[in-house]
Design a protein around this nucleic acid. Structure first.
Lengths: 190, 190
DNA sequence: TGTATTAAAGGACAAATGTCCTCGAAATTA
DNA sequence: TAATTTCGAGGACATTTGTCCTTTAATACA
């Protein structure tokens, strides 16, 4: 819970009282490796704070290949954001790639929080704004960096991912094929 | 003003009274072709609703080439969102590519609106959520579609852009070079 | 334990895209 | 109007990336 409090306070000041009053809305959940937090085609009804572990967000493209769009790491949130916000079926699946511990809140409870507390409403807006900035960054990277630059960025910013995820997942995350990733790795180790 | 009201109501119900009370915060502004709404390196202090016209959002990459990241069209919002939200210098410039009419609100007034009215606070969150979804869509397109598919998508979804923007701007928006765009266009007209 | 399956590396060739260039049309300016 | 500049199309070749395939190692399973 402590890390969750720190996370919230990094967004906007949350008093201890405010936190105590509402943190009960968040439920503990274990998600063993390979289990799903969200499934394509179903409405994603929950948001979770990741206490421990890593998840992978992916969807199936028109060739039914899994395309990894995001790795979700410790002390961050995870959800199929678009599905959650719009309450429409999710285009994404979210799967634990190692044993994971979550703090979960569902859509209805979160809307209640928004009603009851302007602090939480504020948090909701700030998170949406943050999510946007992260996505903008991701889009810029995709647009402007070569495969090699993208790999080096991942190596620098999220090196732990490289041990936890498969070559396939990393490649699709970087927007290249396995073959290209293999070439890049060879080039770098020389 | 009527279109602005329609725009807001497409996000969340806004009563006439609520609209009348607060729409005075938004000021009319004309932006002739080639003039700037936001400039790289300066904090973007405003958001605008585009009554008429088109703007182009771009930044300079490491080779000092302009990379167009967005075309902003009528009856939508424009701002250097990240700069506005975080109140940090903008990485983007926003320039009118034809004579443009705006409804503008500045950061301080918008924060006031958020304080005064939970309807507006709600609008703020919903807009952030929408911005995210648009950006997610953009990132997916960049990641998964070929240059030709991206061009055809633009042709279908925002054909007016193709007449208004230069080949250079369209190419950088699609994440390809002028040369590739030229090839695509030739292929399509056959 | 031995067999089957899956995952990663990398060879050979094909396709897509980029770089550098020229040409001509259109727009701008003297 | 004539000269100059800008912009878009496209040729030639280089580079990057993808596709398909084989080999090897690791993992799962009967």
């Amino acid at each position: 819970m402590e890390n969750f409090k720190l996370f919230l306070n990094s967004l906007t000041p949350v008093s201890d009282g405010e936190f105590e009053n509402y943190s009960q809305y968040f439920k503990d959940r274990s998600l063993p490796k390979n289990n799903y937090f969200a499934v394509q085609g179903k409405i994603c009804q929950e948001v979770a704070f990741i206490k421990k572990g890593t998840l992978r967000t992916y969807y199936l493209n028109e060739k039914s290949e899994e395309v990894t769009s995001c790795f979700c790491t410790e002390n961050n949130l995870t959800t199929s954001y678009k599905s959650f916000v719009s309450q429409q079926p999710s285009e994404l699946s979210i799967q634990a790639i190692e044993d994971t511990e979550l703090l979960v809140i569902d859509y209805r409870d979160l809307q209640n929080l928004y009603q009851k507390s302007s602090v939480w409403q504020n948090i909701g807006r700030i998170i949406a704004e943050r999510q946007y900035m992260v996505m903008e960054q991701y889009a810029n990277v995709l647009c402007n960096e070569t495969a090699k630059e993208k790999y080096l960025r991942l190596l620098k910013e999220e090196p732990s991912i490289l041990n936890k995820a498969s070559v396939n997942d990393i490649a699709s995350y970087l927007g290249v094929t396995r073959r290209t990733l293999s070439r890049i790795r060879k080039e770098i180790t020389q």
